[in-house]
Simulated assay, not measured.
Amino acid sequence: MTNDDFVIDVTRIREEAQQKMTDGAVTATYGLDPGRVIAVLNDVVATEIVCWLRYTRHAVSATGIDRAQVAAEFTEHAAEEMQHALRAAERIAQLGGEPDFDPATLAKRAHTDYTTPSGTDLKAMLENNLLAERIVISTYQEIARWIGDHDPTTRRLIESILEEEEEHADDLTDLLAG
């Protein structure tokens, strides 16, 4: 079949859509197990909440001569991490799942951990957050590859979050170098 032969059977699609009105965003052409995607996205939610918690703690407890600049960066990153969690949770709901915000399991499901350096050492905080960002970058790249063309909406969501996580890593690297 060449590109010139491409034809969409709109009649068939309309009939299938009519029969599955209550299935929401998941159509017959979805291509993945929605339950598995929801589970992966719930791990993303947990990861982003743990990152929000860590950045927030570091923003509040940072001290030293560079405190204002570093704390401002941590605060900005924390806000973006919370938005990532909310965006992933919204996608879970679109796919017919329940976002899992259970505090008892967040740390177990997160790709990163909450480990924070003792005290208020800015360099250690920056390194701790950079390590977490690098872990998130790698895991989200793997998620995007796994999703592939099977769920373009979720893949684009993960890729847009990934883009911001890469910016976070750049910001932290610059702060460590400066």
Rank of each mutant, 00 (worst) to 15 (best):
M1K: 13
T2M: 10
T2K: 14
N3S: 08
D5S: 13
D5R: 06
D9G: 02
V10H: 12
V10R: 12
T11F: 06
R12C: 02
R12I: 04
I13Y: 01
R14G: 06
E16Q: 07
A17L: 12
Q18R: 15
Q19M: 06
Q19W: 07
K20N: 14
T22S: 15
A25V: 11
A28T: 15
Y30R: 05
P34R: 06
G35D: 08
V37D: 06
V37A: 05
I38F: 01
A39I: 03
N42R: 12
A46I: 00
T47L: 10
T47Y: 10
E48Q: 06
I49S: 02
C51M: 15
L53D: 09
R57N: 14
R57F: 09
A59K: 09
A59Q: 12
V60C: 11
T63R: 15
G64T: 05
D66T: 14
A68H: 12
Q69E: 12
Q69H: 11
Q69T: 14
A71E: 12
F74C: 05
H77F: 09
A78E: 04
E80C: 07
E80A: 14
E81N: 07
M82Q: 07
M82W: 10
Q83I: 01
Q83M: 00
R87N: 14
A89G: 05
A89I: 00
E90T: 07
Q94H: 07
L95G: 00
L95F: 00
G97N: 03
P99R: 01
P99T: 03
D100F: 01
D102K: 01
P103R: 01
A104T: 03
L106F: 03
L106T: 08
L106G: 10
K108Q: 15
K108G: 15
K108I: 09
R109S: 00
A110G: 01
A110H: 02
A110R: 01
H111T: 07
Y114W: 14
Y114F: 11
Y114E: 11
T115G: 14
T115I: 07
G119K: 14
T120M: 06
T120S: 14
D121M: 09
D121H: 09
D121W: 01
D121A: 12
L122F: 04
A124L: 08
M125P: 05
M125Q: 13
L126R: 07
E127K: 11
N128Y: 04
E133P: 08
E133I: 08
I135S: 06
V136M: 11
T139R: 10
Q141T: 14
I143Q: 00
I143G: 00
I143R: 04
A144L: 12
I147C: 04
G148S: 06
G148T: 05
H150D: 12
D151V: 02
P152T: 13
T153I: 13
T153V: 15
R156Y: 09
L157F: 06
E159V: 11
L162A: 08
L162F: 08
E165H: 06
E166N: 13
E166H: 10
E167H: 11
H168V: 13
H168F: 03
A169Q: 03
A169E: 02
A169K: 02
D171V: 13
L172G: 02
T173G: 13
D174H: 09
L176R: 02
G178S: 10
